[in-house]
């Protein structure tokens, strides 16, 4: 199953995450209908689309839950379609899942410690400092329970927790959901910073404007299919995208 690591694909670029023809079902309902997405090393790629288009399903399918019924997902050339979630995560992929899913009864620090489950102990202190530097508010809240944080702080915690495993590829699922515009801006700035430090980012967003401005490339999803793709600027300028996702106050 394993091809040469860091497979060069049709486009000749260094593809890290390669999603090919993926179909996913919830029972009889088909959520994904043959999705093709490439995420190259060092990029920020965003996937935008309306509610229920299948964006979160795609991210979850990449993590192996639910499993793809058809198609193939490779990470650095290694087929991960049928791997268990925790094995995929141990290969250097981390996700800040939808709904944040932080541990509300544990302290911020404990949450971050859990994020470092797969990492080496020697890096722990340095990684913790790095997360605290990215999100200074977490440093102040270190001994507070996760459930007592505000929505924005919880999102920062979720991202910070994902970073603790030193991922090569970071998946973010709607980090802006339910947050004040100021906080959204702050979070997107940090995502750019994370990317500059060498982590590839795959960002799923409803907030198309911010996401497309940030991203190198973008995909637009509707009804479980990719209907458009291009660079961030191209998509921002696209009339269809403007009409469907940007008009009306994002």
């Amino acid at each position: 199953m394993t091809e040469a690591a860091g497979a060069e694909t049709r486009s000749g670029r260094d593809v890290m995450l390669d999603i090919r023809g993926v179909e996913t079902f919830y029972g009889r309902i088909q959520a994904l209908r043959g999705v093709d997405i490439e995420v190259c090393r060092g990029e920020i790629v965003t996937l935008i689309g309306a509610n229920g288009a299948g964006k979160s399903t795609l991210l979850m399918t990449v993590c192996g839950d639910p499993r793809a019924a058809a198609g193939r997902i490779t990470l650095d050339g290694v087929d991960i379609t049928y791997k268990a979630t925790f094995e995929i995560v141990r290969m250097g992929l981390a996700q800040a899942p939808e709904g944040r899913r932080i541990f509300p009864r544990m302290t911020v620090r404990e949450n971050l410690q859990l994020g470092a489950t797969t990492g080496d102990e020697e890096h722990f202190d340095g990684d913790l400092e790095r997360v605290y530097d990215l999100f200074p508010i977490l440093r102040n809240r270190a001994d507070q329970r996760g459930g007592t944080l505000s929505g924005g702080e919880q999102q920062m915690l979720a991202i910070g927790r994902a970073l603790m495993s030193r991922p090569r590829l970071l998946l973010l699922d709607e980090p802006s959901l339910g947050l004040a515009p100021m906080i959204v801006k702050q979070i997107f700035e940090v995502v750019a910073e994370i990317n500059n430090a060498g982590t590839t980012v795959f960002l799923v967003e409803q907030n198309a404007y911010h996401a497309l401005r940030l991203a190198d490339r973008g995909y637009v999803m509707a009804n479980g299919r990719i209907i458009l793709s291009g660079t961030g600027e191209e998509l921002l300028a696209n009339a269809e995208v403007r009409a469907a996702y940007l008009e009306g106050g994002h």
């Binding site: 925790f86 995560v89 009864r105």
Partner: peptide
């Protein structure tokens, strides 16, 4: 210890645990 923390985390949210690389 990490193992005990993983137990408690598992009680709270199994999906989150798996997404953190914990073998449930």
């Amino acid at each position: 210890l990490p193992v005990g923390r993983a137990w408690e985390a598992l009680r709270e949210d199994e999906i989150a645990c798996r997404s953190l690389g914990i073998n449930p």
